[in-house]
Each structure stands twice: as C-alpha cells, then as structure tokens.
Design a protein around this nucleic acid. Sequence first.
DNA 1: AATTTGACTTGCAAAATGCAAGTTATTTGA
DNA 2: TCAAATAACTTGCATTTTGCAAGTCAAATT
Lengths: 145, 145
Amino acid sequence: MPTGKDTPRSNCPIACALDLLGDRWTLVVLRDVLLAQRRVFSEIAVEEGIATNTLTDRLERLTEAGVLERRPDPRDGRSRRYIPTECGLDLIPVLVDLMVWGSKYTSVTAPESGTAPAEIFDRAVNDRDALIAEFIKQARDSDSE
Amino acid sequence: MPTGKDTPRSNCPIACALDLLGDRWTLVVLRDVLLAQRRVFSEIAVEEGIATNTLTDRLERLTEAGVLERRPDPRDGRSRRYIPTECGLDLIPVLVDLMVWGSKYTSVTAPESGTAPAEIFDRAVNDRDALIAEFIKQARDSDSE
DNA sequence: AATTTGACTTGCAAAATGCAAGTTATTTGA
DNA sequence: TCAAATAACTTGCATTTTGCAAGTCAAATT
C-alpha cells in the first residue's frame, strides 16, 4: 500500500494519494514512465530540469510505495530500469485527466508543442477509455524490451 | 490561464498543470471546494490540519489562476466565499480519479471511513461520467446559496 | 461597549528543493 | 588493456517552502 509518510494525514483517499503524489515532481516522473515509456534514470524528466538528488528520492519513494519496480538493466550493468506495477498503471487515468485540463487551461498555447501530438488531446477527451487502454498496453510492451 | 509560476517549466500540459496543482495541499483544498461544497476559509481542510498561512496562499494562487473566484459572503461581512469557475469544475475528473486510486491502493482500509460513503467509490469506477456530472451540479447549486 | 469570531499576517524554526561537485561501478574506445 | 567516458547516484550548502504559534483587524454578537 503506497503511503508517502508513515502516518497518513487523514483517511480520505484523495489526501492519502497526495501524501505520495502531491509534490512538484512525482507526477512528472510518472508521466515519463507511464506515458512516454522512459525507464532509466538518465532519460526521466531531464528536459524538465529535475535535480538528480530529487529524482533519486522520487524513484526511491515510488519504488518503496509499490508504484514502480526497480530491475537491473540487462543491456547495461550501470543502469537500472524502473517499470510500472499494476498500481502504477492505474495512475494513467489521473495523468490523462491532468493532460486534458492542462492543455485546456494552461499557457501551453498549442497542444502539439507538448509531449504528445495533438491527436492525443482529442482522443483524451473523446475516446478516453480506449486511449487509457492503449497507454497501458504500450507501457506493458515497453517493459519486456 | 492558470500557471503556478510566471514561467512554466515546460510546454507539457501535465507539467504546466502541476506548476499550479503539484503540491501537498492545493488538490486537498480543491477537494473540499469541488466535492464537499465547502466555500469559506474556516471550513476548508480544517480536519487535515493545513496551516492558515498556507491555506491563504493556496486560495490566493487558485483565485489568481482563475480556478476559484472570491466573493464577499452576503451573510457575514467578515467572510468570503471561494467558488469554483468553469476551469475549477473541470478539475473534478482529476479528483475523482485520485479518489479511485487512493481508495484502491492507499492505507485507507475501508472506503466508507473517508470523505464519502462507500457508494461513491463504486460509482466512481462503474458510473464515472454520471458521478462527475452530479458533482458539477452540486457544486453549481452550492454557489447560489 | 466589551467580547468573540473570521480571515488573515508575522516571525521563526524545520523540512524540502536546487545546484554544483564529488564518488563508484561499469563500459567503451584507442 | 587501460585510460577516458558514462550511469546512477551522494554530499554539502544555499534558497525556498512549509509548519507552528502568536498577533492583528474588522465585523458580528452579547
């Protein structure tokens, strides 16, 4: 059971979810892992400029919480792969909703300038369930690479 | 257009959304306003123990971002009412998804011990769109009180 | 008129975050 | 083969954010 702190601040599931996810970086890291299929330290959130000690900490917390799993990289002994668990995959809907809201109300003028092509944003609104299923499948496929 | 900082850290809509929403308290505050129909300072997040200066700051940021609107309270001149804008109402899906994830994976053992009755959690999974529509309606109705 | 209450400030300590510069274990290239 | 490069972290320190307790001030209550 993922919990950010040892003692949850309340028994509200939203507040408890935010004990783990409620900070400036955690969901950005998960965006990379869950939607952009990034799996190794040096690929994650680099363009957003996260500090390396913060990234270490977030990957550690997410691993400890059971959202990600850490495995040795079979292709490079220096590397590790962070792959999403079922619990992690279940956060994809949250990320899709944030993407929809962010692209509607945020200063990101053109959706196509972001992480994903414009088509994704349309589908997030009009074909949400299928899009989520597709992200889940892509994430699963990336893990057996 | 809501932006947490003057300069967004990236042009990804998820990262930009998190510039405003990505911290320990903002979404808890919005949970109270959007799902629990709390509208005044002294009712919001009290049971979670947010510091008053932090609550002031979050309400200010959300107001400035156009997520909430601040109005004088017609019933008490000392009070103000924070009511959600359209932009704010559009965050309800995010909160519902967080609730679903939190109640599935968080140490909140029984959903009924949280903010809402158990029925809500079932509907969030099985009847999501209708539940969201209902929350939107409730939020709108609470504002004309 | 005196007290209470709602919505904040203010001051200060503690925690989180950012930045730059190490460290260690592979892996790569001459 | 062996020095240079690289991946994934640590460490130290400055800055920012957050929490806690106490104080302010105007409006409402008694």
